[in-house]
């Protein structure tokens, strides 16, 4: 029932703001990817599948943070890590070899199309998970 040295809840305070921003990005990435895949998949399949992957990660990360608990934290940690690797990897690749991504994804140019928030968001997520790793009380 009562966990000893349980981690702090990730779904209150600043965490709720983080969840809100994750939700906004989940909505943005999902609708964008859905539309691209539905209407012009053949033009840039890799870019659109990547958008879809990013969308799924944003959704799962938001759910992980909102669920809190040990499992939720693990899920959120995995998502934020994949997200950071993704935005850095795709960011570098899209700068070095723009041919690879003929159409924009959420993560192209380190998320410049979205005010670089895709780059900042996973860092904030990891920091938040770190800050809440132990309950100080």
């Amino acid at each position: 029932m009562v966990e000893v040295r349980a981690p702090k809840r990730t779904n209150a305070g600043p965490g709720r703001l983080l969840i809100a921003v994750y939700l906004l990005f989940a909505i943005a990435a999902t609708s964008r990817a859905g539309l691209q895949i539905a209407t012009k998949f053949d033009e840039a399949p890799v870019a659109y599948l990547l958008s879809a992957l990013a969308a799924i990660i944003y959704i799962v990360a938001a759910v992980g943070l909102a669920r809190a608990g040990t499992a939720g934290r693990r899920v959120a940690l995995a998502c934020c890590s994949v997200e950071l690797a993704g935005v850095l990897g795709v960011g570098i690749l899209s700068v070095v070899d723009p041919e690879l991504f003929p159409d924009e994804t959420v993560w192209s140019q380190f998320g410049s199309g979205y005010g670089y928030i895709p780059l900042v968001l996973p860092v904030l997520g990891l920091l938040w998970l770190w800050r809440t790793r132990r309950d100080p009380s």
């Binding site: 305070g13 600043p14 709720r16 703001l17 809100a20 921003v21 906004l24």
Partner: peptide, 8 residues
């Protein structure tokens, strides 16, 4: 943080 959400 509720106000921060409204702001965002």
């Amino acid at each position: 943080w509720g106000s921060a959400i409204v702001c965002a």
